[in-house]
């Protein structure tokens, strides 16, 4: 971890600066995490209960509409994960927050997993509804490309040995991805309406009935808290991993110095 620059210490610290201290983060998250996890489990269980026993089957889609209760929150969180990476990348490159890279690194696999979940549940829902697992629909294509961006971020990080360099390069890519994501989303919309507007299938009407909307919101809240809990756990693991690595390096250094001293004494 880099020490805070001097001018940051003389100015009064903001809330985010105080939270960016890894030690304080570990203390705070250690207290919050069990509660957050329990809350996520409770709300998701309640949401699943609503999904399977309370929410009525759709009059057109039948029981398959229940895929939506997993699919829609996953898609939202896939995008939220990228937003989190982008904010963290910005924090790392501009403010040099020590925890920003930890946050970006922890968010990538979680966001990618939710994006993949959204793609898979979407395919499974598409088969009974559209008659095919995959359509080159604007929405599907842009989510798929979001998934590729996640893969690129993780691949770039894993291919650089120098962790500090990997952190900054991944942050550059993460921010560049933010600029390109809306363009991709917009461009596939454009492309699709030009090519085959008839096959663009849209779910539901503009208004979802409250009996379905309410369980959906409960599920979305539960999934979001699950995301936050997983993210916090991932960040804690990463901080601990870096501490173990630092300790190990210090140990090696000490051993090397000890050997140097002993050879100097004997020689």
């Amino acid at each position: 971890m880099k020490p805070m620059s001097t001018d940051a210490q003389t100015t009064p610290q903001s809330l985010t600066q105080r939270l960016a201290n890894p030690t304080r983060f570990m203390e705070l998250s250690g207290v919050i995490l069990p509660w957050l996890s329990a809350l996520a489990a409770g709300i998701i269980l309640y949401g699943l209960y609503l999904t399977f026993f309370v929410a009525p089957p759709d009059y057109q889609q039948g029981e398959t509409v229940k895929i939506m209760f997993i699919h829609v929150p996953s898609a939202w969180l896939g995008m939220m994960g990228y937003a989190m990476i982008a904010i963290s990348s910005f924090g790392l490159l501009v403010f040099r927050h020590p925890l920003a890279d930890v946050s970006a690194k922890a968010a990538a696999p979680i966001g990618a997993a939710f994006t993949l979940l959204a793609l898979i549940t979407g395919s499974l829902w598409g088969k009974p509804m559209w008659g095919t697992y995959w359509v080159w629909d604007a929405r599907l294509t842009s989510v798929l490309i979001l998934f590729f961006l996640y893969l690129g971020l993780m691949a770039l990080r894993s291919s650089l040995d120098d962790e500090a360099l990997a952190a900054k390069q991944t942050a550059v890519l993460g921010l560049a991805g933010v600029v390109i994501l809306p363009i991709i989303k917009f461009s596939v919309d454009w492309w699709n309406t030009l090519h085959q507007p008839a096959s663009v299938v849209k779910m539901g009407g503009p208004a979802i009935h409250p009996s379905i909307l309410y369980p959906l919101i409960i599920n979305a809240v539960g999934f979001s808290i699950l995301f936050l809990a997983l993210h916090m756990k991932g960040m804690r693991n990463e901080v601990l991993r870096r501490r173990v690595k630092a300790l190990r390096m210090a140990e090696v250094e000490q051993a090397a110095r000890g050997r140097e001293a002993s050879t100097a004494a004997s020689g």
């Binding site: 490309i145 590729f148 691949a155 291919s159 120098d162 991709i184 454009w190």
Partner: peptide, 24 residues
């Protein structure tokens, strides 16, 4: 620039960015 398997990684990173160009 300094990565292992640079060429393949480059394709993975850059091709998603080319999507709008290709589409338009």
């Amino acid at each position: 620039l300094k990565t292992r398997r640079g060429g393949l990684l480059l394709a993975l990173l850059v091709l998603p960015f080319y999507v709008p160009t290709l589409i338009f």
